[in-house]
Design a protein around this nucleic acid. Structure first.
Lengths: 185, 185
DNA sequence: AGAAAGATAGACCGATCTGTTTACCTTTGT
DNA sequence: ACAAAGGTAAACAGATCGGTCTATCTTTCT
């Protein structure tokens, strides 16, 4: 149906991720999407709404990929807890990698009440919930605590990979994760 | 001597940190600094140069505070490795806390070759070097590896504290850190 | 066939952006 | 006392910002 809307969001996904939200004008988005400005503003009331729609799409794509890849790499819950770090390691090595779009959003929209910032917080929680589910299946003593720990290691690795360009961060984080996983099993 | 320059950088430190780099215009900086636009451009050739000078100042202030506070809180190297997390916990609880200015800079200046991004990477390395020094004094088996691990936990905690508003992140990271510290001693 | 819906390119709006310039004022060293 | 240095406020330049609007074209439903 609304393929124009998808074109716009797909263009926004690329541009906002690579260049940032404030640095990307709507003119750049419509040029990348090959769409007129009127069309963009027919689908989104403001740029802020486009940003929110783009972040929602990113959340969906990112978590779907995280789940699919992690479950493809490992078949047991315990192995999947480790495989999470292999999946993010693959992500770090993509040529388009520019950090976590939600960390980036929180950086630009620093106010915690900002809708984009809240969406970022929600995304992180959903990822954490997913990990908690695996930790439960794996029989962790305290799945919530283990998910928190693994997620914190993931965030640390993302920062290392983006800020310092450390493509090995996922492997190092994985080794640390093994320690915390084995303490719970 | 150059007190005007300091006024400008101090104003820029507040505004760039709270509102972001692209979202803060030079007009806002000169208003906050109570200085004319001419004066700003006498001291800095471009806004980008002001950003770089501001990041350099932030690096100096941040690391000095990290060292001073951590050394004040604990007198032995081993205790200091833990105290690092208390220091960042205090930071998280400041009302002006808006995440790590260098993570924020890397988010807005995503290109790794961007001078601001490179300064961010350098800052992270200097913090890691400081921790490595303590790890050495503490007699860690592999000080470089331990510093890497603790720094990764710190980055994870910063993300949690900023994106999710989790003021407890430093304590949780500290508990994780204890595990990795004790494995090396 | 013909009306309604939705697309197009692009002119246009007022505001804001970085950066320059003008004209004047204040401080300071000799 | 006086020139030089460095400060001020504000006008200005040209580009870009988010957002609106017009006039035209294409598609689709009945």
């Amino acid at each position: 149906m609304s393929t124009k809307r998808e074109q716009i969001v797909n263009a926004a996904l690329r541009l906002f991720y690579q260049r940032g939200f404030n640095a990307t004008g709507v003119d750049a988005v419509i040029a990348e999407a090959r769409v007129s400005k009127k069309t963009l503003y027919n689908h989104f009331r403001t740029k802020d709404e486009l940003i929110l729609a783009t972040l929602r799409k990113r959340d969906e794509l990112f978590r779907n990929n995280l789940m699919r890849e992690t479950e493809r790499k490992a078949s047991t819950p315990i192995a999947r807890l480790s495989a999470l770090f292999d999946t993010i390691g693959d992500w770090f090595r993509e040529k388009s990698f520019s950090g976590c779009m939600f960390i980036n959003a929180a950086a630009e929209f620093s106010d915690h009440d900002n809708p984009s910032h809240q969406l970022a917080a929600q995304h992180k929680k959903l990822v954490c919930d997913y990990i908690e589910g695996i930790a439960e299946e794996a029989g962790a003593a305290d799945p919530k605590a283990l998910a928190y720990e693994l997620n914190l290691l993931i965030e640390g690795a993302i920062v290392y990979a983006h800020v310092m360009g450390d493509k090995d961060a996922a492997r190092r984080a994985k080794e640390m994760a093994q320690v915390h996983i084995s303490r719970q099993l």
